[in-house]
Amino acid sequence: MKFVRRYAQLTPMASSKRIIWVMGVLLAILTVLGPVYLLVKYSISDGASINTGGRPIPFWPLHPTLSVYGYLFSDRHFYTVLGNSLIIALLTVACSMLLGVPAAYILGRYKIPGRRLVLLGIISVRLFPDIASVIPIVEFFIFIGAHQTYWGVILSHTLLALPYVIFIGMGAFETIPQELEDQASVMGANRFQTFYSVLLPLAVPGLAAAAIYTFLLSWDEFIFIYFLTFGRQEMFTLTLYLNGLKYAEPQNLLAATSVCLSIPVIAFSMVVQRYMVAGISSGSIK
């Protein structure tokens, strides 16, 4: 509060407004960091700091320990699960991009007949809740033999991500000025060359956002993978592994697994975010 008071003194005008602003920022930080704190705290807690027997749970573990991490990383099954999650998420990103980017390019830059109908069709895929569509889709996957296979899981995740990739990507392609495309074709570029050397590089920030979203979607996905793996342990991903731990006591193992679930997501987002530089197309017009 000392900080708040000192900050308010810097600008005597509208100091009450400043205080509200600072409080808002602190609240936002608390909302973001609060759960992270709880998760990390539980993951390094010893049993006595969780099951306190009626006494209040301490603000910081009584005896901080990394023992559950040690247990987790000595479990061979955990490595398989981590690998499964990574492979499925990355291949889902690759598949969704490969299928979604060309679609986004066409829908974003050409006035094709029936464009609105196509867009409606694409977005309608996401109108049903996952839980409603999972049974028919799994039935179909069993029919085509994609049940309990990696490519089946990747296909199902691509199915979920594709509408988002197309919509985000379409926005990215739409905002590129027409004159850049015209200029490229006057300079002798055919459609593919224009796409590859002008439009695609300029759409990268939007496409990177779509990639992050797709990665997260696949990494967090539970329902489809639950039904598609159908108890086949060696295909489990982190979400299924976590599901198996939900009744385990004490909760420190659950918390440690959750931390492991979060770290790759943060890492992937940080890598891809480098391509999301805002305002990359400034300087082309004028």
Binding site: P177, E179, A184, V186, M187, G188, G283
Partner: peptide, 16 residues
């Protein structure tokens, strides 16, 4: 792309 012409647009249309 098959015409041997060059054009300068009002906005210059430089590839950013």
């Amino acid at each position: 792309q098959k015409r041997n012409l060059a054009m300068v647009f009002q906005s210059y249309a430089l590839f950013p």
